[in-house]
Structures are given as structure tokens and as C-alpha cells.
Design a binder for these strands. Structure first.
Lengths: 199, 199
DNA sequence: TTTAACACTGAACTTTTATTCAGTATTATA
DNA sequence: TATAATACTGAATAAAAGTTCAGTGTTAAA
């Protein structure tokens, strides 16, 4: 019962790796099963043996990416004492992570496609809710530690997510150092703004 | 020679309007000619009579969108005396006019997926550069009028664009008032930040 | 060794897609 | 009125896409 499980894991990973690269490069819709077949060397039927369908394959990649991000962040979070430090740390983490896994381009396309089965929509909504919850918690901690003076936590969770979302797009055209700098600057602005203090 | 020209203009506009809405909502690849046929009520052949092909239709929309944005903003800009006012005005304008920024989503997809002519790519790059130039000019004015104290104008132009870009994505799931509020809040943050002043 | 579960193939099937074109109706021109 | 140009139809075409499934070889269980 070992060699089979091992084989399954191996090909599932092979398919996932190829699909991730292709979705990243070409986008969701423009990546065909045939593309994945060519990239992996295995048959179309085999892909459907391991994944329910194209949508399921993509959602699998998103969720995998998500849990991976959570894991690495959890290991990093301890290093930052204050919430402000955490925000800069998160920005850096995102900047670096998204250079390696820029799946967001395809997921934007995927998300904005209206006609989806309810279970697919459910999984998508859970993903977005996860991001905002994460931000809310972070901001709440900053309030608790008296670092921020904000009332509208939910609103600012969206602002923060928007900032990171948009910045990711631009970072695709940047070098590593340039992207890091941009993310740091974004956090500067998020925390301190650009207007002159004396008003 | 009048009734025909008028008719052509009318149906061309009808097709463009429907296509714009669909591309915005569903993205480039996911919008089919059949979708546009259903939305307009005219035939597929008619679309190809007025536009060279799907790509040509999309490029037409991009160009039209660009000139339209410049025109409307130029008319509005006078109303806002300070640069800070201009920024809030721009945010409101973006929040309300949902035909502007949402198209960037489709154009990103279009730009990234298209393995097509380099002159098309060049035109898309010019568009992005145009936004950042616009932001840079706005920020420069704010510095000239002593409203801001920023050094890294180019960096902040990207931050501002990122904020608007990301916020637009969230605003698709919002009601009108909710979206307006979010854009206002975004500008608050951009200008004043969220950290406590006394530090 | 026999049986059953599993991993996989690849061609066939069904939809969907962009695009074309022969033909029709309407309008302008001579 | 006759002719040419224009605006449009809608069915046909052909390529590409996602998905399925009967069948094949391999591994685990009895």
C-alpha cells in the first residue's frame, strides 16, 4: 500500500507544479489541459483522475499556496515584537513570496468570472475572508498595544489588503530590491501618510 | 450620407458599450463574441463588420477609455483647489465611475497572455506609464504647494496606483455608498496614516 | 495464484470559440 | 428609376477546449 500512495503523491505534485507554472505564466483561462498534458507528459485522463476538474485543480493550488504562506508567516511572526514591526515584516514577506509565487494574476481572473458553481464560490469567499480576517486581527493587536488609534478596523483591513493586492501587480515588473523598497514604502504610507504634520 | 453614418456610429457605440461592460465584468478571454451578441441583440457578423476582430475591439475600447478619462478629469480638476482635494476628488471619481479602472484587470490579462505583436505590448506599457505619470504630476503639485513633504515621488505614484488598483477589486463586491466610503478612507490613510502621532 | 483495487492511457464526445461569407435589406448616388 | 454602396443577418466552419470512459498494466490483498 506504500508504492501506490507514493506514486499518487508524486504525480499529483508533478501535475500541480506544472499547472502552477502555467497558470502563473499564461493565466487561468489561457492555460489548457493540453498544456498541462504536454508539460507533465502524463495523459489528460490522469489529470482528471487526481483532480475533479480544471477548477478543482486551480482551487487546490490556491489553498496549498495559502496554507504554505500561513506556515512560513507563523514561523516569522515571532521575530517582530510590535504590530508595526509585524506590518513591515508582512510587507517584506509578501514582496519576497510573490516574486516566487505570483499566482495572483491568474486568481484575479479566476475570481472575477461570474458563473461558478456554489461550492466553488464558497471556497473562493473563504479565501478572501481569510485575508481580511488576518488583517483585522493584526490591526486589532495594534490597537490593543496602543500603537494605532483607529476605529474602522474592517474598513482598514480592506485598505491594507487593497494596497498589497495592487502593489503585487506592479511588483511583477520590478526587480527584487525594487519590490522590497516599494512594499516598505507602502507600509510607511499606511502608517504615517504623506501629508505634512503641521496643519 | 447622414442616416448611414449615424447608424454606424450608433451600433458601433452599442457594441462598444456592451463589450466594455462584459470585458470589465468577466475579463478578456472569458468574454465571448456570443456574449456580446446576446447583450447587443445584433449579429456576430455585424460585430466583425465594425471591428477587425476581438483584439481590435478591445484595443478600440482601451484607446477610447484613455481619451475619455483625460477629458472628464480635466473638466473636474478645476473644482478642487488643493492637491489634497484633488486626491479625494480623484478617489470619488474612481469609485463612482466604474468603467475606468476595472478595465485594467482585463487589459492586464490581455497584455500578459497575448503572444502577439510587440507594438500591442508597447501600447499597453505606454498606458501604465501614463497612469504613473499622472500620479507623479499630482504629487509634484502637492509638493510645490507645500502640502506634502515627500521625496520619493515615483515610489509614491506606484503606491497610490496600487491602492486604487486593489481597492477597485474589493469595490466590485460593494454597494455604491460602501465603495465611496472605502475610497475616502483609502485617501485618509494615504494622507495621514494610521499610526499614533505621538511617538 | 487469484482477485480486487489502483494508477493510468488516449481516443472519442460534447461544447464552446472566433471568424467567415453568401445573401438581404436599406440608403445614397447617378 | 436604376445602380452602387452600405449596414446587417445568421448559418456554416474549423479549431480548440474541457471532460468522460472503456480498457490496460501494475501493485496490494486474500
Amino acid at each position: 500500500m506504500n508504492k501506490k500512495k507514493q506514486q499518487t503523491e508524486q504525480t499529483k505534485k508533478k501535475i500541480a507544479d506544472a499547472a502552477r507554472a502555467l497558470f502563473t505564466q499564461k493565466g487561468y483561462k489561457a492555460t489548457s489541459i493540453e498544456d498541462i498534458v504536454k508539460a507533465t507528459g502524463c495523459s489528460a485522463g490522469n489529470i482528471y483522475y487526481h483532480f475533479k476538474n480544471k477548477e478543482g485543480l486551480f482551487l487546490y493550488l490556491l489553498e496549498e499556496w495559502n496554507t504554505e504562506w500561513d506556515k512560513t508567516w507563523l514561523a516569522k511572526e515571532m521575530l517582530y515584537p510590535t504590530t508595526i514591526d509585524k506590518l513591515y515584516g508582512m510587507a517584506e514577506h509578501l514582496a519576497l513570496d510573490q516574486l516566487n509565487h505570483p499566482l495572483t494574476k491568474a486568481s484575479d481572473e479566476f475570481f472575477n468570472n461570474s458563473e461558478k458553481a456554489p461550492d466553488v464560490k464558497e471556497r473562493m469567499n473563504e479565501l478572501v475572508k481569510g485575508y481580511l480576517d488576518f488583517n483585522r486581527q493584526l490591526l486589532q493587536r495594534g490597537i490593543d498595544t496602543n500603537e494605532f488609534e483607529i476605529a474602522n478596523i474592517s474598513g482598514l483591513a480592506i485598505i491594507l489588503d487593497s494596497l498589497m493586492l495592487g502593489l503585487n501587480k506592479h511588483s511583477l515588473r520590478m526587480e527584487r530590491e525594487e519590490a522590497l523598497e516599494a512594499y516598505r514604502l507602502a507600509m510607511d504610507v499606511f502608517l504615517y501618510g504623506i501629508a505634512k504634520p503641521a496643519r
